[in-house]
Simulated assay, not measured.
Amino acid sequence: MPTYSHVGGDGLAPGSASSIISGVVSGYHLLKIVGYSGTKEVPNGKRVNSCSFQVGGRTWHVRYYPNGWMPEHIDFISLFLKLDATVAKGEAVNAKFKLSLLDQHGKPVSSYTRICNTIDFSVVKCQGFARFVERVELEESGHLKDDSFTIKVDVTIMNQCHAQKKPSVLVPPSDIHRHFGDLLLSKAGVDVEFVVGGETFSAHRLVLATRSPVFKAELFGPMKEGTTTGAIHIDDIKAQVFNALLTFIYTDALPAMDKHEESAMAQHLLVATDRYALERLKLICEDKLCNCIDTSSVATILALAEQHHCHELKAACLVFLSSPNNLDAAIESEL
């Protein structure tokens, strides 16, 4: 594969450098079908599109036909890969792809893996497998768990050329979060204290006000906390939750926590983030809870999503409950 590099006219290395690299570009996308039973209600010939994803600078999506692409495929699940972007005249997008049903360990199942050899997507736009898997086979295979299954889409684009800049100096990633984390731990220059759940937390008014408009109003506005020199008491947040909140404010990351505590902590933090208007942390909690939905927690999480206006989290709960089995089990867990 050829590589072309720029060289200065005087024979010396230039102040900056770049390369044009020709070769193949590969990537993959995981498509999880949650609430499979609900998708069986989609009529034959009708599809549900996946979210868009990118490979090789191109945008793609998967077309999922739960009851087959054409009348003759009504007993099958059909899957197709679609190129979204408009292709310039005379330009070819030669790609091959593979669709694999994953087992419960995230490994491709060889008997349910389909490979499409290289085709020009600038011409066909959409290609796939009308008889990817028979629904009865899928339902009896053991790969359908909690009414869900996952498809891995591997895409390889041939003869791609892309520019790559070679930096003259290797710059490390930003570490400002580490410095602010050290500042919180050292307590150097702290000027405000909070008493939460019997524990005392020290912090810096300016840092809190910079990160949260609510803290800014409380600590620098005409409120009681803005003029007090004593500790501020917070009675409706647990100490562990407030500690995680402070850690995020200073470091933009959550402290390490036990996997079994993650769901409960995310629920408590979601309430706290709404109170202090920490939108990014709220979205992080929402995302974590989307992955924690089960029959015992879905009612609580759905109520939280409603109360705190978490639209994506609410949608994830409703998709989960669209399965009659999940709905029945969730009702039983509440009784």
Rank of each mutant, 00 (worst) to 15 (best):
F76K: 06
L99H: 04
A92F: 06
H73N: 14
P71M: 05
E72K: 11
N67P: 01
L102S: 01
S141L: 11
K98A: 09
F132A: 05
A85W: 02
E134I: 00
N94L: 12
V133R: 00
E137R: 13
W69Y: 15
K96F: 01
C116M: 14
L83C: 11
F80R: 12
T86P: 02
Q127P: 00
K89G: 06
L81A: 05
L83P: 02
A88N: 12
L79V: 03
G90K: 13
P66L: 04
A92C: 13
C126V: 14
H143Q: 12
E72F: 09
L83Y: 02
P66Q: 03
L102A: 01
S141I: 09
D103G: 12
L83V: 11
G128N: 09
R135C: 08
V87H: 04
S100H: 07
R131H: 12
D75M: 11
R114S: 13
D120A: 08
K98Y: 02
E140I: 00
R114K: 15
F80A: 11
A95N: 06
A85S: 15
K145P: 00
S110Q: 14
S78M: 12
A85Q: 14
F76V: 08
I119K: 13
V62F: 02
K98N: 10
I115S: 10
Y112M: 15
A95S: 11
I74D: 11
L79T: 03
D75C: 07
L79W: 04
D146P: 05
Y65E: 10
V123Y: 08
F80S: 04
I77A: 03
N94Y: 08
A85D: 15
H61D: 12
I74A: 14
C116W: 10
A95L: 10
K125F: 00
N94K: 14
D75F: 06
L101C: 07
H105R: 10
G128V: 08
C116H: 13
E140D: 10
V93A: 10
F129W: 10
S122D: 07
G68M: 04
V87N: 09
V123K: 15
Q127G: 01
D103Y: 01
